[in-house]
Design a binder for these strands. Structure first.
Length: 218
DNA sequence: ACATTAAGTGATT
DNA sequence: AATCACTTAATGT
């Protein structure tokens, strides 16, 4: 079987399986022609702050941690990218011809389609592409409003619970292998606060705690 | 058995 | 909620 045939059929299948809203045949043809399939390992840096954005990812499998950095160089977790998603921050940056404002690291093995940025503008003529892009914006914006509420009202317990759900969701596992310290860094909090809230959650029967692991109960 | 690291606790701001 | 100082528990060598 020829390499080319295998690739084109598989890209169609990948779109079908993970991006079911992208149906327009002309658009699918465009993706088949210009997207490249990429695989990266856990811990690999996909994008760094200040780097020039050349492609936009469409995640097929695995998950990607997307972070921002503040003036003092502290990292701030923005969100996780999961299969069927694309990166809202990359989209905004490439539309404005800005360099990347985010850092993206694979938190497990990731497969994806990389779309060259020059098609972002061009493909806006496709209804399916427009709604795909707008939907990723809308979802991130709603998320942003939610976390704004949590922070404004000092709801660390809410933030932590959401963090654990997001994490388990993005890894497809109910057991999270992290220390309280690592979680505290992601939430810009302190280890003691995380430990205390986790203990409360354990007493309420929401989680089961172990050294370096948290089992999320339903 | 000992050192290291994670987690728990109380007091203070 | 964050930070400090200190204790206790788990784990690696």
């Amino acid at each position: 079987m020829c390499y080319f045939c295998r690739m084109t059929t598989s890209i169609e299948q990948l779109l079908d399986n993970h991006f079911p809203t992208i149906l327009d045949t002309e658009l699918v043809e465009g993706i088949k022609e210009h997207a490249t399939y990429r695989e990266v390992d856990e811990g690999d840096l996909l994008m760094d702050i200040g780097a020039k954005i050349t492609t936009i990812p469409m995640i097929i499998s695995g998950s990607v941690k997307v972070m921002r950095e503040d003036e003092e160089g502290r990292e701030l977790l923005l969100y996780y990218l999961k299969p069927g998603e694309t990166c809202a921050m990359s989209l905004t940056c490439c539309m404005a011809f800005k360099r990347s404002e985010i850092r993206a690291v694979a938190q497990e093995k990731v497969t994806m389609l990389a779309i060259p940025v020059e098609f972002m503008d061009e493909w806006m003529k496709f209804r399916d592409w427009r709604s795909f892009v707008m939907n990723t914006y809308r979802m991130r914006f709603e998320e942003l409003l939610e976390s704004l509420d949590s922070i404004a009202f000092h709801r660390m317990d809410e933030r932590l619970l959401k963090y654990l759900h997001d994490k388990s969701n993005s890894l497809n596992a109910s057991e999270i292998q992290m220390s309280h310290q690592e979680i505290a860094v992601d939430l810009n909090s302190s280890r003691e606060v995380i430990s205390r809230i986790l203990k409360q959650m354990e007493n309420k029967g929401l989680v089961k705690l172990g050294r370096n692991k948290i089992l999320l109960l339903d």
